[in-house]
Write a protein that binds this DNA or RNA. Structure first.
Lengths: 300, 300
DNA sequence: TCCGGGTTCTGCATAATTGCAGATTGAATA
DNA sequence: TATTCAATCTGCAATTATGCAGAACCCGGA
């Protein structure tokens, strides 16, 4: 006796308004059989005859009238929901969850987000900083901006630029001559990278080129590594976009190709089709490409 | 961007009210996967995040609120429809389409319908008299009361009693003695049955036992045949329920077993589950069974 | 009187949905 | 700290709904 499937009322309205099941089917974008069968099922389930099935079409009975009356109210409510959804989308408002690493946020993204939110005041950007690998399940973000040689194919997106790494020293270690630099590189202690990133290109380069005894400490985010290097603990590998923009650090080497990787802007959200997602995606991609010189280490 | 499938709002409400997808699934009587997937599909299609998917359950977002608000109005409207349908059913009102033959209507059904409608004043019984065979497609009736040896299995129902036929003569032909009866039977002309019923047991008996030259005329309903017999045109085969209740006719024979058949009350309507259909069905079945003596020719 | 265009309706093959069972996760509890 | 429990997810299989093509039918007009 219960009546699930509220969708039936959409069919009832269509049949009443168009006069026949085939016309209703065309309006609804389904086959005429579907309309016939859905109406028949509703009549069987509820013990009411909504339409006289004439050869000239489906003619609503008197009992149909009260149902249609309520169904039209439902239609109004659904249209209100659709207007709300569509309008919100067109007006570019809502929440936008972005995940990235702290180094990218500090060096590049923060000013971009500032510009974006100023331009779209009704969009609120929620940044989640996670330095762990991006293959964590249950990605709760709409957009991910991450460094990777190849992103997992569960995420879709585009490569924005290269991302290179170099060795940096606190300025107090070196006066800037190349002789000094070589000496510092050989003799200094290091600020290493945490275990969570030991499998990354940077971690692997470190394990090959830096003896364990040289490592004074590790930190598990590049911003933390930089701050420790700035404090004079040692020299460190940093992404050039972070190292080159940090006052108080000098670059000791050029970009080291073994650590080269790429920067990706990725979307795997349920709502990747939303206008605000597209807007942010396009904006960030364009701006980051414009700054590819910094990302690819051409700054020095 | 459009949003078909109004049924999704039923799911949204259930999830909001019960706090998790599994609880909503239980309330809705479906599997939890169905709820998860329907919500996910809606979010993907409309670019909106309705719920935060936490381990502790689905928590509605701010954007969900306006949708739920409208969805609750929809729920009110659907409940109004359900109340209307259920109420109408319980109050036993509405239209009830009955199809039968004129002979059954005249001899038995009319007084039964009178009692039924007096007892259920809000039910309107629409009788459609069709003497053609009952295998006509597109049976537009809720209940059919018909004579048949075996009803087609597309119709469901129950056998009410036997239905027997005998030969009747207008009273002016015979004074009632058995001698007279034999003489009348052999010498009179006949009122035959129309071609539409030639394949029925009655039609076959006629073709075997009555010479074509004896047939003065035919009519295609038994009531018409009876009226012509009453007018003195000839003798005729009639169902006993009709012949025995017709003043001015005398039965010449006992029930002729070759023409025996059964009386069925059948329902194949879309709305056979409706209360008024059941009520009429039970009433008619009970009353006809009480009169089975008449139907089976015990009246003489 | 026959024919054409529209309809409803029905098998049948395919596509989509659903249920089921397991994997995974997070949090609360002993 | 381990462990139990309830929740979200995800392949796979079975069920269900859908589209397609044809049959049957009615109505109007040449």
């Amino acid at each position: 006796m219960q009546n699930p499937d509220w969708d039936i009322f959409r069919y009832v309205i269509a049949v009443v308004d168009s006069g026949s099941a085939v016309a209703a089917a065309e309006r609804l974008g389904v086959n005429a059989s579907t309309v016939l069968r859905k109406i028949a099922k509703f009549e069987t389930d509820n013990g009411v005859r909504l339409f006289e099935k004439r050869q000239s079409g489906y003619r609503p009975t008197a009992e149909c009238a009260t149902i249609v009356e309520e169904a039209r109210k439902i239609e109004q409510n659904v249209m209100a929901i659709n207007r709300d959804l569509l309008g919100r989308d067109l007006r570019l408002e809502g929440r936008l969850a972005v995940t990235t690493t702290d180094s990218l946020l500090v060096s590049l993204l923060a000013p971009l987000i500032e510009v974006f939110t100023a331009h779209h005041p009704r969009i609120r950007v929620d940044v989640s900083v996670t330095n762990s690998r991006l293959n964590l399940p249950k990605q709760d973000a709409d957009i991910a901006i991450r460094a990777s040689k190849m992103p997992p194919d569960t995420l879709v997106g585009q490569r924005v630029s290269g991302l290179v790494f170099a060795v940096y020293a606190p300025a107090v270690f070196a006066d800037g001559t190349s002789d000094d630099r070589g000496q510092v590189l050989g003799n200094s202690r290091w600020v290493g990278i945490g275990q969570a990133l030991s499998a990354s290109p940077v971690g692997e380069w470190m394990s090959r080129n830096v003896a364990p005894g040289q490592i004074a400490m590790t930190a598990d985010t590049f911003v933390a590594v930089r701050d420790c290097a700035l404090a004079g603990i040692g020299i460190a590998v940093l992404p050039c976009c972070l190292g080159d923009t940090s006052r108080g650090l000098v670059r000791l080497t050029g970009p080291i190709s073994e650590m080269d990787t790429s920067l990706w802007v990725l979307t795997h959200s349920d709502i990747r089709g939303a206008a605000r997602v597209k807007a942010f995606n396009e904006f960030v991609t364009r701006e980051l490409r414009a700054k590819s010189a910094l990302l690819e280490g051409a700054g020095v």
